[in-house]
Every structure is written in C-alpha cells, then in structure tokens.
C-alpha cells in the first residue's frame, strides 16, 4: 500500500508539485498521466526517497520513507525516468550486483535472475555489456533491476519509453501480469497506455492532481460530449437528415467528402446517450451503409484543458453548450 499525503516540492522558486495526496491499495495498478513537467517524476522520486518533499509524507506499507528509509525501500522496486545503469558491467554482473545491493534473501540468485530476465525478455542479452545494448534493451535492464528481489511495490517512471511497438505490448503485458499480486504506480503521457494497463488513473497537471478515476470513466468524462465521426455512403443531404432524426443526437453535419459517394459526418450525442446502435439501424433502414465509425480522439492537451476547466468551473464538461465547444481546437 502506498499512502501519499500533502506532498509539496519546490525547486528554488519553481513549483514542482503542490499538495499531492492519494492512496494506492494493495494489488492496484495506478497510472500517473500527465504532460511534460507535470510533476510525475518528482512525485515518484519523493515516494522512493530520492528526493525530500518540502512538506507532506509518503508511506510504503505503513513505513514512512523519511523516518524509516531502509525498511521502506526494501519494499520498493523503482525504475527511474533514466534507467540507472552501470555501463561497464554486463547485464548479468549488473543484476547480480542489484541482488546484493537489495540484500535479497530467501530466493536463490541464479534462479531468481533467470526468472527476471525471462520476464522482461533479456535472456539473449544476458552476457552482453550494458554499454553495447540498444536503448530498448537498456530500458528492459532498468525494468529487470526494479523486479529483482520481488518487491511488493513497483514504481515505474515511463516504463515503455524507447521501446518499439511490439516491445511496448510485451512490457505492458508483463506489468499487467505483475500487477496481480503487486502494487504498481506507472507514469506515462499516453492515454491509451493507461487504459491498457491500469485500473485507476491519476491525472496530474501543473503539479496537482486534477482527476482520480477509472480509465473508462475518465474517457467518458473526457469524451462526455460523445463526438463521433461517421463515414456513410449516401447522398449528403439525406444522410444528414437521417442522422439528425436519430434519438439522442444533438448535432450532426457533414465535414468532408471522404470517398466517392460517401461523406464523413461529425455526430454529437446528448450527454450519457449512446447513439451508435440507433444510428446504425436508422442508416441501415434507409439503405446507407456505415463505412467507418470512430469516436473523436482528443489530444492530451485537450484533455487537460477539459479537466482543469471542469474542476475550476465545477461544471461537468459534458454540460457545456455545443457552441462553446466549437471554439475549441478539435479539428473538424
């Protein structure tokens, strides 16, 4: 369990993080989502005892990181933003050193290290000098290092940075698997990553937590206006008329001609209404097939703007008038 209360850290005059509080329960995987400079790494560095906060406290399994540092750190596996590697060692030497450094006991060295390198897919690089590994493999060594000693809490700062798409999926699965019996915090800028791995997401912006929710709730909140782009084969005017007639549709209009004889339409549903099924049926009845249907992806910046606005105005974003949204910077 990780308990963080009122953490504040300033760098000189600059604010790093501001009164951050949250609790992560045993066995939970929590995603830390935020843009560059939001304060993700700062928070993680404080939890792991690398930095001290100006005020507030962090506890790992009930142990205060400042008052009981050595004991608390025994419970933590930490992958910092830049993997802390000794380039002059081989992967084997390095992980063996980590095994000693963490004073692992009760698990046999060779078996344990074999298990770890298998998990992160480093078996073929085991005897190689870390200096000569590619960026993605260095990142994996960093990950392996965090796993040595089977710590019950994992703090992973952007664990998939530098990996290729196939490796990203592999590592995400590894993290998911680990999360079954471990408490994990991971940070990322990527919304999809949070949805793919985490049960819960903390959105952090400008040093403050702006949302704490399940990823699907968060996406609902973010896409609260339920904007869809629909590509329909059929005459522009009639399709628009049909779309506007669908129960729950608030707004519909054609944007561009996509393919020969088909148009992309922007459809906006009323709050909490899923218009996809009735829309399909209406169009099918009229004989106009749907060629493509997707929800509008918002960029991370748009998400933060929305969350911050929602917090400040104390009105849910979904309650905003369509007119105001059109002044936003979503491209349509």
């Amino acid at each position: 369990m990780i308990e963080v209360s009122g953490l504040t850290k300033t760098y000189g005059k600059k604010r790093g993080i501001d009164r951050i509080s949250f609790t992560v329960n045993d066995g939970e995987i929590v995603g830390f989502l935020g843009p560059n400079g939001a304060g993700k790494s700062t928070t993680m560095n404080i939890i792991t005892g690398y930095l001290s906060a100006n005020s507030g406290a962090a506890r790992i399994s009930g142990l205060d990181v400042l008052e009981n540092p050595v004991e608390a750190k025994r419970h933590i596996g930490y992958l910092p933003e830049q993997p802390p590697l000794y380039l002059d060692m081989t992967v084997e030497e390095y992980l063996s050193f980590i095994y000693d450094l963490k004073k692992v006991s009760g698990i046999k060295r060779s078996e344990h290290l074999d298990e770890v390198i298998n998990l992160v897919g480093l078996t073929d690089q085991y005897k190689r000098l870390i200096r000569n590994l590619s960026k993605g493999y260095k990142q994996r060594v960093g990950m392996a290092q965090a796993l040595v000693g089977n710590p019950d809490v994992l703090i992973l700062d952007e664990p998939t940075v530098g990996l290729d798409p196939k490796q990203i999926i592999e590592i995400r699965n590894v993290i998911k698997g680990l999360g079954k019996d471990r408490t994990i915090i991971l940070s990322t800028h990527i919304l999809q990553e949070v949805s793919a791995i985490c049960e819960r997401v903390l959105v952090i912006n400008n040093g403050q937590i702006v949302a704490d929710d399940r990823p699907d709730n968060l996406s609902a909140l973010i896409t609260g206006d339920r904007k869809l782009t629909v590509r329909v084969a059929g005459p522009r005017e009639s399709v628009r008329r049909i779309l506007r007639g669908v129960e729950g549709v608030q707004y519909a209009d054609a944007t561009v001609q996509a393919e020969e004889g088909s148009y992309d339409f922007l459809v906006e549903a009323r709050p909490n209404v899923d218009v996809r099924k009735p829309m399909f049926q209406a169009l099918a009845q009229a004989g106009y097939p749907i060629l493509q249907l997707k929800s509008m992806d918002l960029s991370l910046e748009d998400i933060f703007v929305k969350l911050v606005e929602a917090k400040r105005g104390n009105t849910a974003p979904r309650a905003k008038t369509p007119k105001k949204q059109e002044t936003g910077k979503e491209e349509f």
């Binding site: 560095n45 792991t48 005892g49 690398y50 050595v70 004991e71 750190k73 025994r74 933590i76 930490y78 910092p80 830049q82 802390p84 980590i98 450094l101 963490k102 004073k103 290092q145």
Partner: peptide
Amino acid sequence: QLLLTSPV
C-alpha cells in the same frame, strides 16, 4: 538514484 533508493 539507484543507490539512494536501495535499502542502504
């Protein structure tokens, strides 16, 4: 960062 966050 590794050394200072290890149990030493």
